[in-house]
């Protein structure tokens, strides 16, 4: 059951984020916000293949939510309930989409964007090529880390110095990414990408029964705030 999310097609995966975004506009009160968030948490607990990554996403979304809560509280008459509602609205708006984006396979997404939505083939192929680079970033980070450690510039016990180390590593990864992007664009052009006018796709983009049911679930989740409001919450 926990592999269903991975087996759904990428457009379905991303539709979860789209529906949550649209549904979040109906969150106007704390009970509605709690019901909407609760629905996503419940379905997440049942269907997501792991808990660490969703928690990381939730953590990043929470940073945005806290700033919204604080600013709403300061500027909105210091109404705590309204401030918390605004914060939870942000979590419902951004959280599900950010979680689902991580499960999207770049090549499959390209297949569906090109063959189902008929977006321009070259644009989509370039987009997929860029997305797949994220898989290699982990390995590049590992290599950069090893080099720094063996050359005397690894992390230390000093938390302040480690902040600088993390910034330095991030910059090094950025340099690697930019240089890799240039080289990859050369490699892509040299494999016919520059002149690909009638591009085809190695895999089809079918819609299975699972995909159709998954869209229904995503839509119902997105409608949770509307249903809650109609039910008087």
């Amino acid at each position: 059951m926990r592999t269903l999310v991975l087996r759904a097609n990428p457009l379905v995966q991303l539709s979860v984020g789209l529906f949550s975004l649209l549904g979040s506009f109906w969150i106007r009160s704390l009970p509605v916000a709690l019901i909407a968030l609760g629905a996503y948490v419940l379905v997440g607990l049942l269907l997501l293949p792991g808990w660490r990554y969703p928690l990381v996403c939730l953590g990043f979304t929470a940073i945005a939510a806290v700033t919204i809560v604080y600013s709403t509280w300061r500027l909105g008459g210091r109404d705590t309930e309204e401030a918390i509602t605004a914060g939870l609205r942000i979590v419902v708006l951004a959280g599900p989409g950010s979680v689902m984006a991580g499960y999207v396979d770049p090549s499959r997404l390209a297949d569906y964007l090109a063959q189902t939505l008929h977006l321009p083939a070259r644009l989509i192929a370039a987009f997929a090529g860029a997305l797949q680079k994220f898989t290699g970033f982990g390995l590049a980070w590992q290599q950069l880390e090893r080099v720094r450690r063996v050359r005397g510039f690894g992390p230390s016990r000093n938390p302040l110095a480690n902040g600088g180390y993390a910034a330095n590593m991030s910059f090094a990864l950025l340099v690697q990414a930019l240089r890799g992007a240039s080289a990859t664009s050369i490699a892509m052009d040299a494999r016919g990408f520059a002149t690909a006018h009638e591009r085809t796709w190695a895999e089809p983009a079918p819609w299975t029964r699972l995909d159709r049911w998954a869209v229904v679930v995503a839509a119902v989740l997105g409608c949770a705030p509307i249903i809650a409001r109609l039910a008087g919450a």
């Binding site: 396979d105 770049p106 090549s107 997929a128 090529g129 797949q132 898989t135 290699g136 890799g180 080289a183 990859t184 050369i186 490699a187 892509m188 494999r191």
Partner: peptide, 8 residues
């Protein structure tokens, strides 16, 4: 490594 354009 620069020539890789797909995950698989």
């Amino acid at each position: 490594a620069d020539a890789i354009v797909a995950e698989r």
